[in-house]
């Protein structure tokens, strides 16, 4: 069975109760008419859905803030972990890869790896919590009607909030290691947008998938680790031996992280092919993940 509903908010004549108008609640609580009925396609009308999503954006932002605060509340270094944790991870990976390479590292490899780790965790720190975002929101989902996509999207917002403090750290190390600086580095903003869009799509996909398959979250850490090793983070894209270069195309993060390194680490204009392939993956994942999520979200209340 396909379950989906049209929700229509319309303006209706003003409230008659003068007392209510006097105390301001008439303005605050706009009288509304909601119509719930099945529709022909699985997907609800997207414009009203997006409008509702936007109307409740404060919920997603507030939840992200609370989650971020609760993750580091009571720890010795508090919010400093937002910088310390990815930095230590980057250093550990660098030492590991440097040992494997026998100390024979290409130019700018440290900043390439560090920037890549930060960008990769922007993606994976969104997807892993997103998988539990719907199944963990039981009471709210059973009690309140709201666009459920807010739940995985707030996991993406948390990840962005975790990512932003790493940028100054990267900037300091970039300059300190003598890497080039140029206007071309601004291309990283475009790649950042692609990664966020891709992360949002995958987050919605796994959040809905977790409702149907509760063991999905057990697979995700392994999947994420393998994905990191298959992405140009611990190695340069141009180091890929002949025969393995397809990995950069079939792995959505392959093109995005290659463009990321070219823009941020080398301060060059990324290859147009990387940008376009990355954009196609990002838009494709966002549309597919989003449509899958909204077509299924009405079932969540009976599946939790």
């Amino acid at each position: 069975m396909r379950m989906s509903t049209d929700t229509v908010n319309k303006d209706v004549p003003p409230q008659e109760d003068p007392a209510a108008i006097a105390d301001g609640w008439a303005d605050a609580y706009t009288p509304e008419v909601n119509v719930y009925e099945p529709h022909r396609t699985q997907v609800p009308p997207l414009l009203p859905y997006v409008r509702e999503l936007w109307r409740r954006r404060e919920f997603a932002v507030e939840m992200s803030r609370m989650r971020l605060r609760s993750q580091h509340y009571g720890t010795m270094f508090g919010t400093a972990w937002l910088i310390l944790s990815p930095l230590m991870l980057g250093v550990v990976y660098f030492v590991l890869v440097d040992i494997i390479r026998g100390g024979n590292r290409p130019a700018g490899f440290f900043t390439h790896l560090l920037g890549g780790v930060f960008a990769y965790y922007l993606f994976s720190d969104a997807v892993r919590p997103a998988a539990r975002s719907v199944t963990g929101g039981g009471r709210l989902i059973l009690n309140t009607a709201f666009p459920r996509a807010l739940l995985p999207l707030s996991a993406v917002i948390v990840s962005i909030m975790r990512f932003l403090p790493t940028l100054p750290v990267y900037a300091v190390l970039h300059v300190a290691t003598g890497r080039p600086v140029g206007i071309e580095m601004l291309w990283a903003v475009v790649v950042f947008a692609e990664i966020v869009l891709f992360a949002a799509g995958v987050s919605m996909l796994v959040a809905a998938g977790q409702v149907y398959f509760r063991d999905l979250k057990e697979f995700l850490p392994y999947l994420m680790r393998v994905w990191l090793y298959l992405s140009p983070v611990l190695w340069y894209a141009d180091e890929v031996p002949h025969g393995y270069d397809f990995l950069l195309y079939v792995n959505p993060l392959g093109s995005m992280l290659t463009a990321w390194s070219e823009a941020l680490n080398s301060a060059t204009t990324p290859g147009l092919d990387w940008l376009l392939i990355g954009l196609a993956w990002a838009v494709g994942a966002f549309v597919a993940g989003g449509l899958f999520f909204v077509s299924r979200e009405r079932e969540f209340a009976v599946r939790l």
């Binding site: 069975m1 379950m3 989906s4 509903t5 929700t7 209706v12 609580y29 009288p31 509304e32 008419v33 909601n34 119509v35 719930y36 009925e37 099945p38 989902i141 059973l142 009690n143 309140t144 009607a145 009405r298 209340a301 009976v302």
Partner: peptide, 17 residues
């Protein structure tokens, strides 16, 4: 409440719930 959709038919709700 708009939490579960009807499979057929129609529900109209006038006002904040």
């Amino acid at each position: 409440a708009g939490i579960l959709p009807p499979t057929s038919g129609r529900i109209e709700v006038h006002g904040r719930v």
